[in-house]
């Protein structure tokens, strides 16, 4: 068993980082090998395995329908996130700064946040029909409340001294909002966005399963039903990439523009 390594001098640390990378790559290869062997030995032939996925990947990636499906799903995720972000930030600031708004809405916000997003699928398809609008509505619903909760926490956590200084200099309410409250809430807004993105991706996929509209989720469902697990898995990998890329992008944004901000605990 190896133990935690004590702080090492710079050169040794660089060497260590290199070997860390090697360990990671070896681990990845081992995972893929185990997967391949287990499936070959014990699973029915249609089950996805790495070598077969690599074989079908070029055909899938050259297919225009696949990319149309990807564009539809990821487009809905971005659009939904944008809508939830704008409305959620406005409402969140309201809840964080105005007590009456907090009192009247908080019970609904936390209630709807705790509600599993899958539960509204039948309701959304009832209201919007079996259309792409239903998917968009579910994405917005899924991402909205984590943004509101985090933004309201951020707006509440603005240090009172900042507000006082702004008041002393006779800053207008608008300037207080734009120059003090919003900038000070940015870390919370980013944390909310990170959580919302994960939920939005789940929502888009599950909506496609339920409503049967073209997209990556529906592609996976269709391919898996016709026992094309390898093809379906390419789509899963693309979804995983989207999730990871968004996570990385937000982390980078935090590190780039908010270097003083240590990763806190987002709500939810």
């Amino acid at each position: 068993m190896s133990l935690a390594v004590p702080a090492a001098p710079a050169r040794a640390r660089r060497k260590l980082a290199f070997s860390d990378l090697a360990v990671r790559i070896i681990a990845g290869i081992v995972i893929l090998l185990v997967w391949e062997v287990v499936v070959r030995l014990w699973a029915p032939p249609f089950v996805a395995r790495p070598s077969a996925i690599v074989q079908v990947a070029p055909a899938v990636l050259a297919n225009a329908t696949f990319w149309q499906a990807a564009a539809a799903t990821l487009g809905a995720v971005f659009k939904g996130l944008a809508i939830a972000f704008v409305i959620g930030t406005v409402l969140g600031v309201g809840i964080g700064r105005i007590r009456a708004v907090d009192r009247m809405t908080s019970i609904y916000i936390s209630g709807l946040f705790a509600m599993p997003l899958t539960a509204i699928l039948p309701l959304a398809s009832l209201w919007f029909g079996y259309t792409a609008d239903a998917r968009l509505a579910i994405v917005v619903f899924a991402s909205f409340f984590s943004i509101v909760l985090n933004v309201s926490d951020g707006a509440r956590a603005v240090p009172p001294e900042y507000i006082e200084v702004s008041r002393s200099f006779r800053g207008s309410a608008v300037s207080r909002l734009v120059d003090v409250i919003l900038p000070s809430s940015v870390p919370y807004i980013l944390a909310g966005l990170r959580l919302a993105a994960g939920r939005a991706l789940i929502a888009a996929v599950v909506a496609e399963f339920f409503v049967s509209i073209p997209g990556l989720g529906f592609y996976i469902l269709f391919q898996a039903r016709t026992f094309h697990h390898n093809e379906a898995f390419v789509a899963v990998a693309l979804l995983a990439c989207a999730g990871v890329l968004f996570e990385i992008a937000l982390r980078q944004a935090t590190a780039r523009w908010l270097p003083w901000y240590r990763r806190g605990e987002p709500v939810g």
Partner: peptide, 8 residues
């Protein structure tokens, strides 16, 4: 970060 619904 992978949406696990996709595995259903």
């Amino acid at each position: 970060a992978t949406p696990m619904v996709a595995l259903i």
